[in-house]
Design a protein around this nucleic acid. Sequence first.
RNA 1: UGGCCUAUGGUGUAAUUGGCAACACUACUGGUUUUGGUCCAGUCAUUCUAGGUUCGAGUCCUAGUAGGCCAACCA
Length: 561
Amino acid sequence: MANEEKSLNFIEHIIEDDLKSGYSDEQLRFRFPPEPNGYLHIGHASSICLNFGLGERYKAPVNLRFDDTNPEKEEKEFVDAIKRDIEWLGFTWDQECYASDYFQQLYDWAIGLIKAGKAYVDSQSSEEMANQKGTPTEPGTDSPFRDRSVEENVSLFERMKNGEFEEGVHVLRAKIDMASPNMLMRDPILYRVLNKAHHRTNTDWCIYPMYDWAHGQGDYIEQVSHSLCTLEFLPHRELYDWCLDQLVSSKKLRPKQREFARRNLSHTVVSKRKLLQLVNDGVVAGWDDPRMPTISGLRRRGYTPESIRNFADTIGIAKRENLVDVSLLEFHAREHLNKIAPRVMAVLNPLKVVITNYPEGEEEWLDAENNPEDETAGSRKVPFSRTLYIEREDFREQANRKFFRLKLGGEVRLKNGYIIKAESCTKDTDGNIIEVQCTYDPKSKSGSGTEESLRKVKGTLHWVSVAHAIEAEVRIYDRLFTDENPDGHKDRDFMEFVNRDSLRIVTGFLEPSLREAKVGERFQFQRLGYFNVDNDSKPGNLVFNRTVTLRDTWAKIQQKN
RNA sequence: UGGCCUAUGGUGUAAUUGGCAACACUACUGGUUUUGGUCCAGUCAUUCUAGGUUCGAGUCCUAGUAGGCCAACCA
């Protein structure tokens, strides 16, 4: 009952209006229509969440329809990847459809169109047709083939279908209006000859329908009520409706196309063409490289489906240009990971600490809470000994009061362990600090309840015992582009803004409980960030990816100085 | 020079359809904290401009301005 009335986006307003003016709940049906020519990215995730979200909200089926009308670019590999990504996001489609399933029906409808005198076979080159097309400010001129007889058109189109012509010799065009202010209505091409094998229909067809002669029909066949697409298809709507006019029956539901603005993410690109270029140029290791804004890249980076769905929900959907800041995506990653990721200790830039008053050869196993945000997460044991690693940035010989970490003569709490005091340090011949000597207070053990253990010390450091630590490869990722809008510059190519330091690989020293970590498992390395186990991991040879850092107030303070 | 779309804080979306501009993020303050994390509290807007209608305009009208899309046998 306490369902707070969430405000509706403009698509939901349209649906609510339709429901008021006669649509029944059962008539609602949606679809997500990817072209299988690349991997899904974060922009698609928004569209997926919109369509499947609508399906959940209105308890309506959502089809997955592959828009596979162009055999030149489409492959089964992409079909499989797309299905995997949608499932991973947690959505279930009703029917799995393919535009290619409708090739015969589309062909029959095209024959009907020709017989109705509304389509003709044009036998000019693409250059000639382009010249006749006019410009946005000038009308086009009619093709010399525009008035071929129905018989000749039918015969030619059948011969196109039978493979009697080379590519480019003939096309089928709709006969609409060469003077339309909408360029798409100037006798658009409906079919072209393509002597290519299709990933599903193989060589059954030599002619393939264009997008405009397939999409609305697919919606109609599947009885999709609301066909949602991005803004660049807005001019296509007039043609979408024209095509539907030629074949709809009043007994069946007529789909409607509505358009929303695609989501752009800062510091990256969301264009399949540009992502493909990053892959082909070797800037990244593949479509699922953790730096890629693809769904598979985000998954490998350690993002959770929940965080991506929450992100999509909060940025919403509208009709204006936008550039969503990545910090919002990162917020959602942290928000979810904070709740579910077990805390562990790992040192990525080690500095040796020797506790001079801790007995040599001794070790003890300390209690460590797995997740302060989750009482059911339990606890584990971490080994403590005389020789430890701490983070190099956590020690300074001298520092002001703002520096809460270890400095000579100063005290600090070792997380889950003891309070230590830095007494001295040793350096190599270049002046680099190579070891810090400390003393510890044996009565200050965490959780022991003693007066000493309850002492307030400003800083708490993470650490690992050198003798017990396991080594692992840790991949530190940063933004792929240095510019917030890399493809938003008219005179500069987006590739100029590639961040050359987007990947740094280090050897980390991890607490031994991580030895059995499995691929895909996510952790918080305390005080450092969230990390997950990469697919490249081998038994005894773990690889971690940094998903995102923790919020870092200290880094901000330092930046200001 | 044509047609169409869009304009609300640094960012992204809202605004009961003409009635006190709200939510989230970011940034900045402060508090709590055995993670400089989390959590809690607070601060940040002449709704693109100029007119008009109205008791009242982010919302309606007019004129500008800015940005985007449209001339692939791509989707």
